[in-house]
């Protein structure tokens, strides 16, 4: 960044050029830093990108589906992949995951075209889990979100992963917090999936699509990205409340522009702000905000129109 003129001056002169030439789609980016934006134009820039929130929920905090859509509208998030995983530490019974999935389905019915549902289950109950996959995909759900009842590389998961390979749908799994403190956060049960567990599962099932949850969600994101660098079938979502500077830039270096996904996990402002602040090219922004997840959805024929 060695621009000799301020953004304000650049924007003013660029706007004049755009006005003269009628090239209305020309944006006002500074060539020395294609991501730089005058502050008055921040919302214009945010709203310019089509977005799929690859990690969204309903029913996990006080925000109602209507509240969520309100925030999504402010930030130009057109589609949200919603789920309701079971509470950590719960039994994880079929009654529980069915109730969670029903809540997701109700939210999708309330906001069709904005929410796409993802199911949850517990592979400890294999028969009921397979029945639930059938029921939920018949209802239009696409993909699966899991918390920490069973590790992703536990053999219990094998038939579920194989089913999702057939369905061509992604498996989104929670990631742990506190790894950089060596001892995991007390809220994490022993069977939470660590980055190395994802590596293991991805190696065993190279045809499956896994999504490593929220590198901004309290994990040591440098550790996670380095662990997942050589796992081509693990996508990484950048959601979470911890919008540390340079996080997405670092993830880009290790994971690459084709495996990173924009997501919020309820942290809408941090996740959009972090994306806009990151040193991404225009095409990389489009990939992360929308195209990468759209490509995942396309595999099962459920892409966004």
């Amino acid at each position: 960044m060695t621009s000799s003129i301020t953004r304000r001056k650049f924007v003013t002169s660029s706007a004049a050029i755009i006005g003269c030439t009628g090239l209305v789609n020309l944006n006002y980016r500074n060539r020395s830093n294609p991501n730089s934006v005058e502050n008055e134009d921040l919302m214009e820039e945010v709203l310019r990108y089509e977005k799929i929130d690859a990690h969204a929920h309903v029913g996990l905090n006080a925000l109602t589906p209507t509240d969520i859509i309100d925030i999504a509208d402010r930030l130009g998030i057109g589609t949200l992949m919603i789920s309701k995983p079971m509470k950590p530490g719960s039994l994880g019974s079929p009654e529980e995951f069915i109730a969670c999935n029903n809540e997701v389905h109700n939210a999708v019915k309330a906001f069709p075209g904005r929410f796409i549902g993802m199911l949850t289950l517990n592979p400890t109950y294999p028969k009921e889990s397979m029945q639930e996959i059938k029921r939920c995909t018949d209802l239009g759900m696409v993909g699966m979100k899991l918390y920490n009842h069973v590790k992703i590389n536990d053999p219990l998961f094998d038939p579920v992963i194989e089913k999702f390979i057939d369905l061509k749908m992604v498996i989104l799994m929670h990631s742990p917090i506190g790894k950089s403190r060596v001892v995991l956060d007390a809220r994490e049960p022993p069977n939470v999936s660590l980055p190395e567990d994802f590596v293991d599962a991805a190696r065993k099932y190279p045809e499956a699509m896994f999504q490593f949850a929220h590198i901004g969600g309290g994990i040591d994101w440098e550790d996670a990205c380095k662990a997942l660098q050589h796992s081509p079938n693990v996508y990484v979502d950048v959601s979470g409340s911890n919008n540390e500077g340079g996080m997405i830039d670092f993830a880009l270096r290790y994971i690459g522009e084709d495996r990173l996904l924009f997501g919020c996990d309820y942290s809408f402002y941090q996740s959009v702000g972090g994306m806009i602040a990151a040193d991404l090219s225009e095409s990389q922004r489009k990939k992360l905000f929308f195209e990468n997840y759209q490509a995942i959805l396309k595999k099962s024929g459920n892409h966004v129109n």
Binding site: L42, G245, Y269, Q270, V272, G273
Partner: peptide, 18 residues
């Protein structure tokens, strides 16, 4: 809170107000 946090979120919270 930059560079510990990103440079845009603090302003986004203001600009996104209705």
């Amino acid at each position: 809170h930059a560079p510990l946090l990103d440079s845009r979120t603090g302003l986004l919270r203001i600009e996104a107000l209705r």
